[in-house]
Amino acid sequence: MIETIRTVAIVGFILVGLFFTLVSATGVIRLPDVYSRAHTASQADTLGAGFALAGVALALGFSTTSFKTVLLLFFIFITNPTAAHAIARAADEEGIKPWTTDDDRTDADLYEEAMADE
């Protein structure tokens, strides 16, 4: 019985993790500019990783090895937002203007701008 619950929980965690990673991938592909992409990269992806790692930790049971997944999670939660910040900051330093709703620039235009800046 407990085994069944655990199995269901593991599968559930991994599915939720997969869902959020799917959102992250969709966001990275769909969103219009680097700033909004950085949102999904740092957030949906971090949460997706969190759920998937929780599933792994559950499967490993209470052991020193499963503690490592907690460590993984801890470091991902510290470093991922920092990486997103670093990228957004780099974009801002280089003068890339954020996309707004009244903005009809396409990816190609943004590319042209990026090349012209260099």
């Binding site: 470091f75 510290i78 470093t79 920092t82 910040h85 670093a86 900051r89």
Partner: peptide, 15 residues
Amino acid sequence: ESQIIMTTVRIVAPF
């Protein structure tokens, strides 16, 4: 320098 990056490095470096 960005404070955020510096502080994160301060934390991660010992580990």
